[in-house]
Amino acid sequence: MQLAKPVGRNAAALKYDILSALTIYALSGDKHRQRSILRIIALITTRYNWRNNELSIGREEISRLWAVNERTVKREMANFRVLGWVTVKRPAARGRVAVYEIDLKQIMIDTQEVWPIIGPDFQTRMSEDSEPVTNVVPFATKPVGPEVAAEDVWSQVQSILHGRDPELWASWFRHLSEAERAGGSVTLVAPSRFMADYIAQKWTARLLAAYSRVDPSIRTVRIEAAD
């Protein structure tokens, strides 16, 4: 699976595909996901330089675009960094705003679940391998899994999750840490409220199933935010 760089003759079509995937991914989630995805779409459509993969914008300007305060901007951008969608290319300095990069490849990996909703032609187009050319960036192959310790329950659970879906593990589960395990209950901690709520809504059952294979006494899994 490959993703061509959105420049050149087919750039417009690929940009529409990426924005379509983000839009349907947002609509398939709850109001928190919808608001979060709408915010990154706003940044992409108003300030993102596709050719250079640069988003040059300050926190104050983002707050105006999103109609929120700068504290909300700081929290949301941190969520995007945790997801791997946004990275800081050049930090802000006196008289100069920060420059970010957007990982379009990671965004497409994370939105694969909604590709069939958009249509079979979209799914085929995004899944097929392209001819190797210089401006093609290959999707990541199977992510390297966690180190497994024989007596460490959490590392064994992580290994099970990685084995079932390496890309899902790399995007979400690897960011979790085990805070407590007692009395048949486990508490996991996510780096942000957004991630904690999203994983709790989507994948609590998968986490519990993985735990049950290692420790059948586990009956409930809770996910809390670190912040």
Rank of each mutant, 00 (worst) to 15 (best):
T23H: 03
K105I: 13
L208Y: 11
Q34L: 08
S56G: 03
I117H: 10
I44F: 02
E60R: 14
A200P: 00
A13M: 05
L65Q: 11
V73F: 09
I199G: 06
E147G: 14
S155E: 00
D110K: 05
V86R: 01
S28R: 13
S20C: 05
I223T: 06
T23F: 09
V73D: 07
D165S: 15
K89E: 12
V221P: 12
L19D: 01
L161K: 10
A226T: 05
V73H: 05
V137T: 11
S63C: 07
E224T: 09
H175Q: 10
R193H: 09
S212L: 04
A150M: 08
I37N: 03
K142L: 10
S155L: 02
H175G: 06
Y16Q: 08
S185A: 15
E70Q: 15
W169G: 12
A182I: 04
I102W: 04
I109A: 12
R174N: 14
Q106D: 03
A11L: 02
S159K: 11
R51M: 01
P120H: 09
E76F: 03
S130H: 11
I160N: 12
S36G: 01
S127H: 09
I102C: 05
L207G: 13
V214L: 05
G119W: 00
T204S: 14
D30V: 04
A205K: 14
W50Q: 04
N79T: 11
W50G: 02
T187L: 10
L176Q: 10
Y25L: 04
D197Q: 13
T187P: 02
G95C: 05
D30P: 04
V82P: 08
I109P: 00
R219V: 07
E76I: 10
H162S: 13
L65N: 03
E128Y: 01
R71T: 08
R125D: 02
R75C: 00
E76D: 15
E128Q: 14
I62N: 00
T141R: 11
D165E: 15
Y16W: 01
R222L: 12
A205Q: 13
L14I: 11
L38E: 13
R90H: 08
T23N: 10
W172Q: 10
E178D: 00
S20M: 06
D129P: 04
V82C: 07
A225D: 12
W115T: 06
F139D: 07
V157A: 09
R219W: 02
S185R: 15
G183C: 03
R39N: 13
R51G: 00
I107L: 10
A182P: 00
A200G: 13
W85T: 07
R47G: 00
N10V: 01
N49C: 04
L38C: 10
S185K: 15
R51Y: 01
V186T: 08
E61P: 00
P132T: 08
Q156M: 10
K31C: 02
V144A: 15
K105R: 14
R222M: 07
L19Q: 02
V221Y: 10
A4M: 02
R35L: 14
A179G: 06
K142T: 15
S171L: 06
M1V: 13
Q123M: 07
A98D: 06
V133F: 01
P138F: 03
V186N: 07
A13E: 04
S28T: 14
V148Y: 02
N135L: 02
N53M: 02
G58F: 04
L19H: 00
T220D: 14
I44H: 02
L83G: 05
A98E: 14
R39C: 03
P146S: 08
E151K: 14
K74R: 15
A205L: 05
